[in-house]
Simulated scan of single mutants.
Amino acid sequence: MKKTLLLPLFGVCTLLSSSISIAAEELTPIPKASSEWRFEVTPYLWAPGIKATLNLGNGLAKSADYSSSNVLDNLKSGGMISAEAHKGQWGMMGDVVSATLQNSGAIPVQGGTATLGDKITLQQTVLTGAVTYTIANTKDAYMDGLLGARAIYATATLNVTGVGTAAKTTSTVDPVVGMKGRYRIADSTWYVPFYGDIGSGGGTTNLTWQAMLGVGKTFSNLIDASLTYRALYYDMKDGGVLQKTTMQGPQVAVTFKF
Rank of each mutant, 00 (worst) to 15 (best):
P31V: 00
L7P: 01
Q110C: 01
T161V: 12
G202L: 00
G94A: 13
W190L: 07
I30T: 00
V71T: 04
A23Y: 13
N103E: 10
Q243W: 08
D140N: 15
V71L: 02
K244V: 05
G111Y: 03
G11A: 08
S104H: 05
N58R: 05
Y229L: 06
K2D: 06
G201S: 12
M247C: 04
D95H: 12
G199Q: 05
D118R: 13
I107Q: 01
A154M: 13
K32E: 14
F39E: 06
P8G: 07
L207R: 10
S67T: 06
T246V: 14
K257H: 14
S188N: 15
A61W: 11
V126S: 08
T4F: 04
A61F: 11
T42E: 12
K244Y: 01
G199F: 01
A186S: 14
K180C: 10
G214N: 03
E40P: 04
T255L: 10
L213Y: 11
T121R: 08
I81Q: 01
W46F: 13
G49V: 00
A186R: 09
L207P: 05
L158M: 07
L54Y: 09
Q251K: 07
T218F: 07
E36D: 06
G196D: 08
Q243L: 11
R182Y: 02
S69V: 14
A151V: 01
G181W: 03
S67I: 02
S77N: 14
L127G: 00
E36T: 07
A114E: 14
L9W: 03
L6S: 03
Q102I: 00
L207G: 05
M93T: 10
F256Y: 12
P108T: 00
K2V: 07
A24N: 14
T170P: 08
A33K: 07
Y66E: 00
K51P: 01
A136I: 08
G239S: 15
S67H: 00
K180P: 03
S220W: 12
F39P: 07
E25R: 14
L146D: 04
R38Q: 15
I30H: 01
T255G: 06
S220M: 13
V97N: 15
L15K: 10
G162D: 11
E36A: 09
Y191I: 04
T121W: 00
G105C: 03
V96N: 03
S68E: 05
F10K: 09
I152S: 02
G105D: 04
G240Q: 09
S69D: 10
L45T: 07
G57T: 06
K119P: 02
Y234F: 15
Y44W: 11
G199N: 04
L116N: 04
T132N: 01
Y44P: 05
L147M: 15
I81A: 03
L213P: 02
M80G: 04
S188L: 14
N221Y: 01
G105Y: 02
G201K: 08
T138A: 09
N58F: 11
M212E: 02
K62P: 01
G78T: 01
D197Q: 05
A106D: 13
L222F: 13
P43N: 01
A156W: 02
T245A: 15
G162T: 08
N206H: 08
Y234T: 10
T132M: 05
V176C: 10
F10G: 08
S34I: 07
P175D: 04
L9C: 06
